[in-house]
């Protein structure tokens, strides 16, 4: 599966357009992480636990999107975009979407 945020892949032709595919996940952080992050909020610096959490969630969203693309018979997802929104206090939705295509 080829993933790209380009609209066209250089040197390859799109033979079939299979429409929009998407994957999303809603994640909450756990209290332990929050306690440590609370301390970090006083002295500043990177919140590594949060970076990891959001990164993992994004990977999961992409994985789900890829699954959808596979079931549609695609071999590439183009023009991929990411979106993040907070749902409630402490929970966030991560969305990945793109266009499933068949490349020759």
């Amino acid at each position: 599966m080829l993933l790209s945020n380009l609209e066209l892949v250089p040197g390859r032709r799109v033979v079939k357009h299979l429409g929009l595919v998407q994957g999303s996940t809603v994640r909450a952080k756990h209290v332990g992480k929050d306690l440590f992050a609370g301390l970090k909020n006083i002295i500043g610096g990177e919140l590594k636990a949060y970076t990891e959490l959001l990164k993992e969630s994004r990977e999961e969203a992409v994985e789900r999107m890829v699954k959808q693309a596979e079931s549609a018979g695609a071999n590439a997802v183009l023009n991929i975009r990411f979106a993040t929104s907070s749902i409630t206090q402490g929970a966030a939705e991560i969305l990945a979407y793109g266009t499933a295509v068949t490349l020759e």
């Binding site: 080829l2 892949v9 250089p10 040197g11 909020n41 500043g44 990177e46 919140l47 970076t51 959001l54």
Partner: peptide
């Protein structure tokens, strides 16, 4: 959005990087 015209054969890979930076109390 498109590679420079001079580009020859290339492989494309989606890459990303992220960081969460906390504010401090003073800020």
């Amino acid at each position: 959005r498109f590679p420079p015209p001079s580009t020859t054969r290339v492989a494309t890979v989606l890459v990303s990087g992220s960081a969460v930076i906390s504010e401090d109390f003073f800020k």
